[in-house]
Design a protein around this nucleic acid. Structure first.
Lengths: 212, 212
DNA sequence: AGTCATATTGACTTTATGGTCGAAATGACT
DNA sequence: AGTCATTTCGACCATAAAGTCAATATGACT
């Protein structure tokens, strides 16, 4: 009789589970990239993932749970994207510029990612909350620096609004010849940085994150 | 035997139809204000409208047709909103400022309208297209006026992005103490108008459209 | 080759949704 | 009160989607 090490058994199981779960999440990305999140069904998902229906319910309680998992996956990709600048840049305006330019670069090289990010952001405000919060903190710090009126709350909506729209445009094939720095400049001016200062931030940005 | 005037008959019928149709569209507004367009069902609609299922199909071929009708209804409300400024204002920047401020005023006094407008804009690009086009024409004209680089296409996405996000924020109860002119100023700066000139546009805007 | 903990499967049940149609209601008119 | 063009009604059917679970497959190990 074969009495196998139960710890090893569990490990093998975990790996298999993880692979299948990843397939399901990947299928979510693929589908959310081409249709509204609310219109995706469990059957769509399992067909796309090449998996049986029961398997879906082993991994997720329902569609909401899968959407949340895709959102989490996305947030993780944001973190990886922003990690390099997060620690090294201290000036708020440059931090914001760096974050936005990272998003734009990523969106240009991976329009599917842009589509999913825009859709998920519109769907589950909970998932997008962590990204919003970090941006908001930068904006609060930035707002202290100038005597200008205008709340960090409003600036937050403005930056988020522009970025989401750019993501949507890129994912839908518009703005194919987009100049990244023009977007950054517009954002910086919108939140109250004068045109001259905006250019200087962009110049420094190019050193941290060269234009593609 | 009563042989009634058939023309009069038709007229009565038309009025009744129109009322029921309006109920259905109103139900659409109510539902789209609180949930994703794609998640609304025919049963939701008829329950909200207080009407039988068959009646729905007498008036609309299906959900898509109703969504289109709601979108059209919305575009009509845009037209009414913008009509006064449309003819009298010729300066592009001021026209844009006027349009945006009209939207913001409307959204503040009717958050439900804001929610529906934002959702429909995201759903049916066809419906939003007429509004986009007019804004784009103003932006093209505006772009000619200055030696600045940057395309009208990009400016369009920026203005639309900010406006949609403001609509969303207002409809979700954020930015309750919003200063309309701060948003307009941010938009004008974002599209390349320097801060001083933006203030002058806003000053003139106040004459055309007084702050609430 | 045989074992067994674990994961996967897909047929099945239930519920939700889209869509149809003959019957009933409406209401202005005589 | 009776007529009739027109609209509305809601029970009904067919299909789609959600959700369940006993049976089957997997694969590392002896």
């Amino acid at each position: 009789m074969a009495n196998i090490n139960p710890i090893r058994r569990a490990e093998i199981g975990r790996e298999k589970r993880a692979r299948t779960r990843a397939q399901l999440i990947e299928a979510g990305h693929a589908l959310f990239a081409k249709q509204a999140v609310e219109s995706v069904t469990v059957d769509d998902l399992i067909k796309e993932a090449g998996v049986a229906k029961g398997t879906f319910y082993v991994h997720f309680d329902g569609l909401e749970a899968l959407i949340a998992a895709v959102a989490e996956d996305l947030v993780q990709s944001f973190d990886e994207l922003l990690q390099s600048g997060r620690t090294s840049i201290t000036e708020p305006a440059l931090r914001i510029a760096f974050g936005c330019s990272s998003f734009i670069d990523k969106a240009r090289e991976d329009p599917r990612w842009a589509a999913v990010a825009a859709r998920i952001a519109a769907t589950s405000p909970k998932g997008a909350e962590s990204v919003r919060r970090r941006l908001f903190e930068d904006l609060q710090q930035f707002s202290q620096g100038l005597p200008d009126d205008g709340s960090a709350e409003l600036r937050l909506e403005i930056v988020v609004g522009i970025m989401l729209q750019i993501l949507r445009a890129l994912s839908e094939g518009r703005l194919s010849s987009l100049d990244r720095n023009q977007v950054i400049a517009a954002i910086l001016r919108a939140i109250g940085i004068d045109a001259r200062h905006a250019e200087s931030v962009i110049a420094r940005l190019s050193a941290v994150s060269p234009v593609l």
